[in-house]
Nucleic acid binder design. Structure first.
Length: 838
RNA sequence: GCGCCCGUGGUGGAACUGGCAGACACGCCAGCCUUAGGAGCUGGUGCCGCGAGGUAUGGAGGUUCAAAUCCUCCCGGGCGCACCA
């Protein structure tokens, strides 16, 4: 990395070796690499610290540098942000557009187990490949800010965050049932074990009781929901986050248990139906199970509990919804009506949801109904739906959940269920039989991993086994190098002699290091701060730098991170705000997800299917500008789109057309009125599209303009300039080359042969359009008769209704359809349409 | 099962806030140029019809002067969650 060039300072450099060879044909190979080198030499894309210009922080989700290199999906997102960054720079913004590496992770470690090559080595060579590939696309990253999460300079601060959270009670160690992936040999966070399978390897996840480190993300559940209102994110992403957090309002009802001095607490969102309760179910892990089961049922209950707790998520899925369970022999009392509710144990009640105990209302909950019918428990009706059915509930179709009116419920009778819910909660609270509570699906974030290639958790244990934070002065708490890569099932760090010795040396005899590493999502939860101040040795980022650059204005990356990275990063930001390190609530103001690029056959690209497109080969054959344009032109960024090599020809032809157009540019030429209009219109349209991330329509507008220019004998220098400026963010190399040729070859510029950075097209201002020029063109008014198009007339823009009406009524084509009938109504839309109703 | 999103030519897709459906491009057809073409140029290309014209945005209704766009139901596809009490 070249640190000699101070950020924001552009070293002037004369380029004298441009042009000359093969000027007749468009040859991307001759121009792309050349300009990439010039741009980098001159630090063209460096973000300026301390600049007074308005800032714009445009960020890609940084990649995991995998051994297979960059794929066309990366290219899509990176091109989109590159275009946006270039556009914003031309608009006068001080743009921060950095790139880095989410470098810790399992694949490199798994490869090490197979091959013996150290993950550091694999990772660094992958980074080299990625860097080369990214540079070959002409992406305008500020490489002086490059970061890698695997470097001690970076993970020092990841560890510092751990300590910050620990100090503030937001990091804690606890014994809990956790998700264990036997294939990856590590525990996983809830978010990484969705659907009971490992997020990474798709193997089923088992439940295991282990002592692990957690981050208390649940403290922020409410803010994590609330603050979604203020960000410009895709609706589905916001919704997924809301669902994942899963806020529910209900009431915990306390039931006395007959014959023992114990109470069972059941959370419910439907207290309105509580007169219809006929049983209670405990989850297998519920502490009361042991305490209340009467001896007669002891054996049966115990074996059921054992069997249930040994189940994997996958077992549960295979079993489906078949209800199983055992009776404890005890009864709870429903205070509302004095009814005895038998207490059962069943695996359909999950220990980690609500209170781990459920009150069964089989008439109005499908699962309760299935359970009741399986064990002959009575079913009672307390709600009548709109169908009016008031009969005994004996069939599943009669079980009514969503709407209705209360019956058989004393003081609730006749009420709508929603009203009844409130009334019942008031009543239960007044009687002190229950308490309103809000629950969340979100769990605390389990961050321990029994893996090597991650940031070590900065904790040491004293000889009594008590955990102590590693003092800040010992950070970075360096990842030891002397480990074996074997799938052992325990943390590889436990084998490191150096790690153990280091700990004893610093802390004393008998002290042991924590041997787990942190989930890599911890590393990526704060990296966007580091880009603001990547070389800071005193802080994760300086206050001033944070204030200047954060939050991120535009964030682009895969939708697969909706409840992982994006949730964790929001949590980190909220914690930082709480502790005074940030002044904002949300890290990413705007978020967009690129759609998946599918293979030609419409399936996902994958190595095993052999349908992967390698961007290197496309660049080799068509050039980087063509690849960029192609990926942007196929459709809207967020859509899934199949790759079609044939279609690259279209954008390649366009670039060749543009290349030929240079010969038409003439100093002193006066453009036709049509072309003048077309240029202004394109400036307006392309600008609007870029702002809205609509690159596909921006490109088609440029194609329209190029087609119009091609029809002209000659075009003015200024029209050509405007065209190139509009093209510059999209196809930066050809735009730069043609800009250079324009500035050096046209007679007017013949005196200037030196090309300095200041003359690069990429530091020019975005062109302005003249609204008056757009008004010059006549408006085409569509003439409709009874809503059907019959004619079109051209009038001056802003023409008044009377004038248009008269013109339309006298039009021959309209006459034919009016045929003597009397118009009853005219609908006039300025400059667009006149509808004559007869 | 629940929630959300989406259905437009042979293809990818345009169509701003309800106002000419099919921009732009691929493909295809015809012609020109060329020793040759994965090159270039010109014209054509939703469907029916010689034509005037009619008809058309998954299907059926509805609202409106006017619907791809708004509403209801149905069909089809995608995504997310899933025994969440």
């Amino acid at each position: 990395m070249d640190r000699s060039v101070k950020r924001g300072y552009h070293k002037p450099l004369i380029i004298e070796d441009i042009g000359g060879k093969n000027m007749d044909n468009y040859a991307p190979k001759d121009i792309e690499k050349k300009w990439q080198e010039k741009w980098e030499e001159q630090g063209l894309y460096k973000a300026e610290d301390g600049s007074k210009k308005p800032k714009c922080y445009v960020l890609d989700m940084f990649p995991y540098p995998s051994g297979s290199g960059l794929h066309v999906g990366h290219v899509e997102g990176y091109t989109a942000t590159d275009i946006y960054s270039r556009f914003k720079r031309m608009q006068g913004y001080n743009v921060l557009h950095p790139m880095g590496w989410d470098a810790f992770g399992l694949p490199a470690e798994n490869y090490a187990i197979k091959s013996g090559v150290h993950p550091k080595e694999t990772t660094e060579s992958a980074i080299k490949t990625f860097t080369r590939q990214i540079k070959s696309l002409g992406l305008s990253y500020d490489w002086s800010r490059e970061i890698g999460t695997h470097t001690p300079e970076y993970y020092k601060w990841t560890q510092w965050f751990f300590l910050l959270l620990h100090k503030n009670g937001l990091a804690y160690k606890a014994k809990a049932n956790v998700n264990w992936c036997d294939s990856c040999k590590t525990v996983l966070a809830n978010e990484q074990a969705e659907g009971g399978v490992c997020e990474r390897c798709k193997n089923p996840v088992a439940q295991k009781e282990m002592e692990q480190w957690f981050f208390k993300i649940t403290d922020f559940a409410e803010d994590l929901i609330k603050d979604l209102d203020g960000v410009d994110w895709p609706v589905s992403t916001k919704l997924n986050q809301r669902n994942w957090i899963g806020k529910k309002e209900g009431i915990s009802i306390v039931y006395e248990i007959e014959g023992v001095d114990e109470k069972v607490v059941c959370f419910t969102t439907r207290p309105d139906t509580n007169f219809g309760a006929t049983f209670i179910v405990l989850g297998a892990e519920h502490p009361l199970v042991e305490k209340i089961t009467i001896p007669k049922y002891q054996n049966e209950v115990q074996s059921y509990v054992e069997k249930t707790l040994g189940q994997t998520e996958e077992d549960r899925i295979i079993q489906g919804r078949v209800k199983t369970g055992v009776f404890t022999g005890r009864y709870a009392i429903n205070n509302l009506n004095g009814k005895k509710l038998p207490i059962w144990v069943s695996d359909f009640v999950l220990g980690y949801i609500g209170t781990g105990a459920v009150v069964g209302v089989p008439g109005h909950d499908m699962r309760d109904f299935e359970f009741a019918t399986a064990f002959g428990i009575p079913v009672e009706r307390v709600v009548i739906a709109s169908d009016g059915d008031a009969s005994l509930i004996t069939r599943a179709e009669q079980v009514q959940e969503a709407e209705g009116e209360m019956v058989n419920s004393e003081f609730l009778d006749g009420m709508d269920i929603h009203e009844a819910k409130e009334k019942m909660m008031d009543y239960l609270e007044e009687k002190r039989w229950g308490k309103r509570v809000t629950t969340y699906h979100l769990r605390d974030w389990l961050v321990s991993r029994q893996r090597y290639w991650g940031a070590p958790i900065p904790i040491v244990y004293d000889p009594e086994g008590k955990a102590h934070p590693v003092p800040e002065e010992h950070l970075p708490w360096v990842l030891p190098a002397d480990v074996e890569f074997k799938p052992t099932g325990y943390s590889p760090l436990a084998d490191s002699k150096e790690f153990a010795q280091r700990t004893e040396k610093i802390f004393g005899k008998g002290w042991k290091p924590e041997v787990d590493t942190m989930d890599t999502f911890v590393c990526s939860s704060w990296y966007y701060f580091r880009f603001a101040d990547p070389e800071n040795k005193e802080e994760f980022a300086g206050k001033k730098a944070i204030e200047q650059w954060l939050p991120v204005d535009m964030y682009v990356g895969g939708a697969e991170h909706t409840v992982l990275h994006l949730m964790y990063a929001r949590f980190f930001t909220k914690a930082l705000k709480k502790f005074g390190y940030a002044k904002f609530d949300e890290p990413f103001l705007k978020l967009r997800h690129p759609g998946t690029i599918l293979a030609q056959d419409g399936r996902k690209m994958s190595k095993s299917l052999g349908n992967v497109i390698n961007p290197d080969e496309v660049i080799e054959q068509y050039g980087a500008d063509a690849l960029r344009l192609y990926e942007m032109f196929v459709g809207p960024l967020s859509d899934a789109k199949p790759w079609n090599t044939k279609n690259i020809v279209g954008v390649k032809r366009f670039l060749e057309k543009v290349w030929r157009l240079r010969e038409k540019a003439r100093a002193g030429h006066k453009d036709s009125a049509e072309l003048e209009y077309a240029v202004h219109f394109a400036v307006k349209k392309v600008g609007e599209d870029m702002e809205a991330f609509g690159c596909n329509t921006a490109i088609s507008q440029l194609m329209i303009l190029a087609n119009a220019m091609e029809k002209e004998e000659a075009i003015s220098e200024s029209a050509w300039e405007s065209f190139l400026l509009l093209l510059a963010p999209l196809a930066p190399h050809i735009a730069e080359e043609l800009w250079f040729l324009l500035k050096t070859i046209l007679p007017r510029w013949s005196g200037q042969v030196n090309y300095k950075l200041e003359t690069s097209i990429h530091v020019q201002s975005w062109p302005q359009y003249d609204p008056a020029a757009l008004m010059k063109k006549k408006a085409r008014i569509v003439v409709q008769v009874n809503g059907k198009v019959r004619d079109a007339i051209d009038v001056a823009r802003g023409a008044d209704e009377e004038q248009v009406k008269n013109l339309a009524l006298s039009s021959e084509k309209a006459q034919k359809w009016l045929a003597g009938k009397i118009p009853v109504k005219f609908i006039y839309v300025q400059d667009k349409l006149l509808n004559i109703v007869v």
